[in-house]
């Protein structure tokens, strides 16, 4: 924390004092027992896409086992059926659910750990887990609520990355989209756009992300039953993934061509579907990939690099 001791804290810094761990932590924690096996570890790491699992006995936290522990186990030729208690870290650094975020940020800085189990101060039971990403997301949500009352420029949330987290943490924002809901088509992009404004990205960067994302949202609304937009935000780049549940694009190459469209007439009369959507996404992004399987769905990824201020 380079800047926390400044005389005049920014709004983001103020929030790190106001917000408590329990407001931003993840509550549904997957846990293991001391006699679970390393095989269980592998399964959970893989299925849940997480990097550390708390080990619990009688509701008490007794250790944590991480992806590193698993790799070391493999490297040493350890038993995959061996018990977790022999591989886990036993002296776990924990945080209390009623601690302010600012203290946790400090602990992240000092320890170099990627996550902390959260325990209740009174009964010492495990109640959650917290990562740097959870903190940024929590701060952003809080700013969003307060934002209703004030203008963006009075806010200075723009230095959220520099203020709170100094490494390359990724902020992940997800938006669900229902197919066919034309009235609302564009709303989710609007939310992402607001978050990017609050994070202080340059207007030209935000414009590119917003236009490409809007087209992706329109495609989901026009052509599919439902889908999701996932934006991964880092200080130097913004990655957007648009996934849907079908019907898929039979000929991706053709679909990328300007003016090629399979949209029905009624869509054209709504001002879309004239075959410019995907070419627009390609033009406004720095990198783009499109994978599609008929009857399964489409997976669109694009990246926009942010310009230095």
């Amino acid at each position: 924390m380079k800047t926390l001791d400044h005389k005049k804290p920014s709004k983001t810094q103020e929030l790190t004092y106001e917000l408590k761990v329990e407001q931003v932590m993840r509550k549904n924690v997957t846990t293991l027992k001391p006699d679970s096996t390393m095989k269980d570890v592998r399964r959970i790491l893989r299925n849940n896409k997480i990097s550390g699992i708390p080990v619990v006995a009688d509701d008490r936290l007794v250790g944590i086992v991480t992806i590193e522990d698993f790799i070391i186990c493999l490297l040493e030729g350890g038993e995959i059926d061996g018990k977790v208690e022999n591989r886990m870290t036993k002296n776990v650094v924990t945080v209390y659910s009623d601690e302010p975020i600012v203290q946790v940020v400090g602990k992240f800085e000092k320890s170099g750990y990627g996550r902390f189990p959260v325990v209740d101060r009174d009964n010492k039971k495990l109640v959650g887990i917290i990562t740097k990403g959870d903190i940024i997301e929590g701060l952003l949500k809080k700013l969003e609520i307060d934002y209703q009352k004030e203008e963006i420029h009075t806010y200075r949330a723009s230095h959220i990355f520099e203020d709170v987290i100094s490494d390359n943490s990724t902020l992940i924002l997800k938006y669900r989209i229902k197919g066919g809901e034309f009235k609302k088509a564009g709303e989710q992009t609007s939310k992402l756009r607001k978050s990017l404004l609050r994070l202080g990205f340059l207007p030209e960067t935000i414009r590119r992300v917003a236009i490409a994302t809007f087209e992706a949202e329109m495609n989901i609304v026009i052509f599919t039953p439902e889908g999701e937009l996932v934006a991964k935000i880092q200080p130097d780049k913004i990655m957007v993934n648009a996934i849907d549940s079908g019907p898929g694009i039979p000929d991706v190459k053709k679909a990328m061509r300007q003016g090629y469209s399979t949209a029905p007439d009624w869509v054209r009369e709504l001002g879309f579907g004239a075959g410019m959507g995907l070419p627009n996404i390609k033009n406004y992004s720095d990198e783009m990939t499109l994978e599609s399987k008929v009857n399964e769905g489409t997976n669109l990824n694009f990246v926009i690099y942010t310009k230095k201020k």
Partner: peptide, 17 residues
């Protein structure tokens, strides 16, 4: 200038400045 009156006109304006 447009003859289209859907919500997407507003979103288009917003996103493109």
């Amino acid at each position: 200038l447009t003859g289209l009156t859907t919500p997407q006109v507003i979103y288009t304006a917003e996103n493109s400045g």
